Every structure is written in structure tokens, then in C-alpha cells.
Simulated assay, not measured.
Amino acid sequence: MAYLLALVAAALFGVGASVQQRVAAEAPDESVLHLSLLWYLVRQPLWLVGVATALIGNLFAGSALGMGGVALVQPLLVARLIFALPLAARWNRRSLHRREWLGAVAVIAGLAAFMVAGRPSPGENGVDSDGSVPRWLLTGGTVAAITAGLVLIARRLRPNSEAPVLGAGAGMLFALQSGLTSMAVSRFGRDGLLALLTTWPTYAVVGTAVAGTLLAQSAYKLAPLPASYPPLAATEPLAGIAIGLSLLGGTLVVTPAAVAVQALGLAVMTVGVFVLASSSLVTGAHHTTGRPTPDDATVEAHQEERRSGS
């Protein structure tokens, strides 16, 4: 049953992401990394359908994780790429070639190898205790610093290269959001609604969710799904494991053989992301958005305009 629930969740995640990217691609160019992008999107009914689809996927994913655990379910959830990429390509009247399929399979297989070898346990310690606050602040600050660094790097890249970096940043924030949500739910179950509304984790969840959504939708705006989505789908579970290890008493197998397989899995996954990000579906993005590919001068002018406007 856990397999079935995870596959249903993966399908819903993939469809939801495809719908969101389709709408975000039509947003005004100047809205990238600005809250005006979210204001534009929340007024688009189709985008709201995509968000609702992903939220339903979260329900199925939660049920699957409760039955099967992280190591079993998470690789299946990354199969969302198998559902998202063909749908996005068909909507854009393109077809996936062997290169794109191999890239998607490499991302999934790489993460699966990491999970199977590491057998990560998310842990349960320190989810909601007074002593956990400094650790949460340290972890949140680390994630924020890494994400800010990714954004700074992304702003100096071409749009098609910027999208994967922003997607990775969104994955980092969504992983932190999941950990904070666990803390907020724990507080609600222990002390009730008033405690939930008067403690910091609730508002940290909201802030992290908004920031992560802004980065993800900006990535969707800048490049087709093969470039913007795989880094998010791969980074989120890996960052979640790291947060589980640092905060929740999680464990990871670290024998020499296991570490070697984990390193190989990460390498394969990285290659898969690169293959997808450099595919013709991405480098030929003008076919999917209806806009010409900008030349170097236009790209530089666009980047300078965004820096001066931020």
C-alpha cells in the first residue's frame, strides 16, 4: 500500500508542478524574485488548481511515509519527474527524447541509491522542546545563508541557467518548511490552537513557505520544467535528511561501502540534473514560451535591470 500511495503522490506532485510552471511562464518578466509574481499567480485559477493538486499529493505522501518510512518512499516520490516532464513537454508541443528520459532516470536512480545505501531515519528527538530552539535557529540560519548564496549566484547567470539554481534554493526552503511544520504540529497536538497561534514555529512555516514558493515559481518562470524542477525535486529530500540528522536525532549508515554508494548516487543524480538542464527543451526555450532567445547584450541588460530594481 505504501508503494501505491507514494506513486499516486508522485503523480499528483508532477501534475501540480506542470500546471504551475505553465502558468508561471506567462507571468511578467520583471516579476521574477519579486512578490508581485505571487500576486499575479494567486489570481490565476489554473495555478490554484496546480497548487491544490500538489497539496492533495502531500496528503498521499504523508500517508505513504507513515507506512513505509523515508528510505522506501522518498525515491518513489522523486518519480514525480516521470509524470511532470512528459506532461510539460506535451503542453508545449514538444516531445521528450532519449536524453531527457535518461536525465530523469539518472536523477531518480541516483537518489534511490543514496536512500537505499544510507537508510536514513528522520528521527523524532528535539522536534518541539525548549532546548531545540538554538538548534533550529542555527539550522534555519544555515539554510537561509545557503539559499541566499544560491540566489546571488543565480542572479548572475542566464535565465536558463538561473532556473536550476533557484530550484535548488526552493528545495532547501521546502525541506526546512517540512521540519518546522513537524514542530508546529507537535505544539498544536500538545497545547492546542492558542499555543499554535502564539508561538514562532507557525509564523516561521508561513515565511519559509512564501519564500520557497517565490523561488520555485521564479524558476518556473525562467525556464521549462526540465531545468527548473529536477533540482528542486532532488534537493528537497536531501536537505530534509540533513535537517533530520542535525535536529531530530536521525541516523544515516556511514560504513565505507554505504558512503561510497551514497557518493556515487549523488554524482549520478547531479549528472542527471545537468543533462536535463542542458537539453534542447531548455536551450530551445523560445519554442516553449513563444519568446525569442535573448542575445548576450539583452541578457546582460535584463540582469542589470533586475539588480538595480531589487
Rank of each mutant, 00 (worst) to 15 (best):
A6S: 09
L7K: 03
A10K: 04
L12K: 06
F13L: 09
S18T: 06
Q20K: 12
A24V: 04
L33G: 03
S36D: 13
L37Q: 03
W39Q: 11
W47R: 08
V49D: 09
G57C: 00
N58D: 12
A61W: 04
G62Q: 02
A64R: 03
L72Q: 08
V73G: 10
N92K: 11
H97K: 15
R99C: 13
L102G: 06
G103F: 07
A109G: 12
N125W: 14
D130F: 14
G131C: 10
S132G: 09
W136A: 00
W136P: 00
A145S: 07
I146Q: 11
I146T: 07
A148Y: 04
L150P: 04
L152M: 14
I153Y: 12
P159R: 01
P159G: 06
N160C: 14
G171C: 08
G171F: 05
L173H: 06
T181S: 04
M183G: 05
V185C: 00
S186Q: 07
D191C: 11
L197V: 01
T198A: 11
A204Y: 11
G207K: 03
A211K: 04
G212K: 00
L215I: 10
S218I: 00
P224M: 10
P224D: 09
P226T: 00
S228A: 11
I241N: 04
G244C: 05
G244T: 02
T255W: 10
A257E: 14
A257G: 14
V261T: 07
A263M: 14
G265M: 04
L266V: 11
L266S: 05
A267N: 11
T270R: 10
T270W: 02
F274I: 15
L276I: 07
S278H: 13
S279V: 05
L281A: 08
L281V: 01
T288A: 14
T288M: 10
G290H: 08
G290V: 07
D295R: 08
V299P: 08
E305L: 14
E305S: 14
G309T: 15
